[in-house]
Amino acid sequence: MTLSPFPHAEFPLGPFTPYAGNPIMRPQGDTWESASVYNPAAIVKDDRVVLLYRAHAADIVSHVGLATSADGIHFDRHPEPVLSPSEDYDEFGCEDPRITEIDGTYYLTYSGWDHTSAQLCLATSTDLLTWTKHGPLFPEFNTFLPVGNGLPGPWSKAGGILPVPIDGRYLMYFGEGSIWYAWSEDLIHWTPCSNDEPIMTPTPPGTFGSFLVEVGPPPIITNNGLILLLHNAAVKNDDGSVYYSCGQLLFSPAEPSKILAQMNTPWLEPQAYEDKHGLVSNVTFVEGLVFFHGAWLAYYGQSDSTLGLATYTIGETYWTPGAAAAVR
């Protein structure tokens, strides 16, 4: 197995600091991205950060837009969406993309919304502009089991593909509600684990994932050969509102369905005004993670309305003795 190309990736990854100039992207114009811009996938191409972000007008029919940046902060947007509703299964939205590049091909997972069910779909490209859709990946799956979401029919979201194979097969973590996994030999056709055997379910009452857990960006291989998965987690308040923050999990490539360690406190949670106010308030939702110019950059949606950035510069630590002494 090829180990991580990132020599400074280890669990827990971070600490991440929200960028002081957030949001780095807001809605613009009066058409397809006029109401909300959020939940971006991220990848590095030709020494530029590329975001594939979710955007919509007041109709909340989502498209995927593209933006590029030389510094990871200031982005130039492509004028038109690069992925839009065109099929029965995504007629009312192409939502929440994640992206992985393997041997020159880009694999984009996204949620197709038909106004009844959300289904995890796949699209591929070699240039990030023109995409071929391959349809829903798990048409019989319900990732809200075993809890259930009270809806008929299938439900699946949030697919993150590990960019290196494990014993000749590719691994995907996926799921909203609970987290699951699937294998593929060709990156197009995927075989999921049993719908009865999630690898992570909502966390105990009183913790930050007690309502649901959901896959964040695609997993990475750390410098000690272990898989790190960032995830989004939510609690549901008595008034029906939600609060989304972000966690981390650690796996072994030898047993990628078994959690070795997890963060029990969020590494990112609503802090700024935009994190706490928007279409769905109190949400930090991470889907994009890249290593760029010596730093880890995490891109996230702020309350389903704007797009934020959090950074981790190599050398920063979660805790040092000097810092502990300073706060006494």
Results as ranks from 00 to 15, higher is better:
177 G>Y: 01
155 W>A: 12
193 C>L: 12
231 H>L: 07
188 I>P: 10
218 P>K: 04
210 S>K: 09
163 P>R: 04
173 Y>V: 02
175 G>I: 01
239 D>C: 03
175 G>F: 00
212 L>G: 07
188 I>V: 15
218 P>C: 09
159 G>I: 05
168 G>F: 07
162 L>A: 07
186 D>W: 03
220 I>E: 06
162 L>T: 10
167 D>F: 04
204 P>W: 04
214 E>G: 03
169 R>Q: 10
151 L>C: 07
234 A>T: 06
186 D>C: 11
234 A>G: 14
169 R>I: 07
194 S>V: 08
158 A>V: 09
214 E>C: 01
172 M>H: 08
238 D>F: 09
180 W>A: 00
192 P>T: 03
185 E>Q: 08
222 T>G: 05
203 T>D: 10
184 S>K: 15
214 E>I: 03
222 T>N: 15
194 S>K: 13
216 G>K: 05
175 G>L: 11
150 G>E: 07
198 P>E: 00
232 N>W: 06
175 G>Q: 02
189 H>A: 13
226 L>N: 11
164 V>L: 10
205 P>C: 02
171 L>N: 12
167 D>T: 10
198 P>M: 00
193 C>V: 12
211 F>L: 08
203 T>F: 02
159 G>R: 07
155 W>T: 08
219 P>K: 00
191 T>S: 12
239 D>E: 09
230 L>D: 15
165 P>M: 02
228 L>A: 04
158 A>I: 11
238 D>Y: 10
192 P>F: 00
162 L>S: 11
203 T>I: 11
